[in-house]
Amino acid sequence: MDLFEIVRAAGRRWYVLVAGLILTGGLVMAVLRIIPLTYDVQSSVLLLPPRQTASANGPVTDGGNPFLNLGGLDVVAGVLSKSLMDSASVESIVPKGSHAEYTVEPDPSVSGSVLAVTASDRTPAGAFSTLDSVLALTTTRLKALQDEVNATGGSQVRLMVITDNTVAEPNTSALVRTLIVVVAAGLVITALLAISVDALLRRRKTRKAARLAAREAAEEDSAASAVPDARAPSGKRASPGRTARPAKPATSGKRRRPAEPAVSTTADVAREPVVAEPVEAEAAATEPRFDFDDFDDAVDDSVELSDDVARDDDDADLVADRR
Rank of each mutant, 00 (worst) to 15 (best):
A244F: 10
E148I: 04
T166N: 10
R323I: 13
V161K: 08
G11D: 05
I93K: 01
D293L: 03
D2L: 06
G186I: 00
L46P: 04
S43L: 05
A116P: 02
D308S: 13
V319K: 11
A310D: 13
K208S: 14
V45M: 00
L201K: 08
A310K: 12
G63D: 02
Y102A: 04
V104L: 03
I189N: 06
G235F: 01
D229K: 08
R33C: 06
V60A: 15
F67Q: 02
A281V: 11
R256V: 11
D296E: 15
A54K: 13
R203N: 09
T123K: 01
A281M: 11
R289E: 12
A136V: 12
R245T: 12
K205Y: 12
N57P: 07
A144D: 07
S155N: 04
P106W: 04
A276R: 07
L200A: 13
A185W: 03
A259L: 12
G78L: 10
G97A: 00
A191H: 07
L142Y: 00
R256I: 09
F67M: 07
L192W: 08
D121H: 03
V275C: 01
A127Y: 01
R203W: 10
A320R: 14
T139D: 15
I35R: 07
S83F: 07
S92T: 07
D315C: 14
N171D: 10
A100Q: 05
A232S: 09
F295Y: 13
L17H: 03
S196N: 10
A230M: 11
G64D: 01
L32N: 13
A224G: 08
A19P: 00
I35H: 02
R51G: 09
E304L: 13
A244V: 14
A125S: 08
T38G: 07
P95T: 06
S302Q: 15
A10S: 14
A247H: 06
V197F: 09
W14R: 12
L32C: 07
D293Y: 08
V274N: 04
D268W: 01
V94G: 00
P106G: 03
I162N: 06
E260L: 15
D107I: 02
D294N: 13
A218W: 10
I189W: 12
A262H: 10
A310H: 11
A174Y: 07
T172N: 09
K248P: 06
G126K: 00
G20A: 02
D221K: 14
A116N: 13
D297N: 13
A185Y: 00
A285Q: 12
D314P: 04
A168S: 01
A250Y: 07
S222K: 12
G154P: 02
S55Y: 11
P108T: 06
R322E: 12
W14N: 03
T123V: 00
L212K: 15
I180V: 14
R12P: 06
R311E: 12
A283T: 13
P249W: 03
V161R: 14
K205E: 15
A247G: 09
V7D: 11
A285E: 12
L137C: 05
L17D: 05
R255L: 15
V28T: 04
G235K: 02
P273Y: 02
V149L: 06
R311N: 08
L131C: 01
L46N: 08
D2T: 10
T140F: 08
S109T: 13
T53F: 11
T130C: 04
I195V: 15
D315W: 09
D291T: 05
D147P: 00
S120W: 03
V176I: 14
A9D: 14
V41G: 04
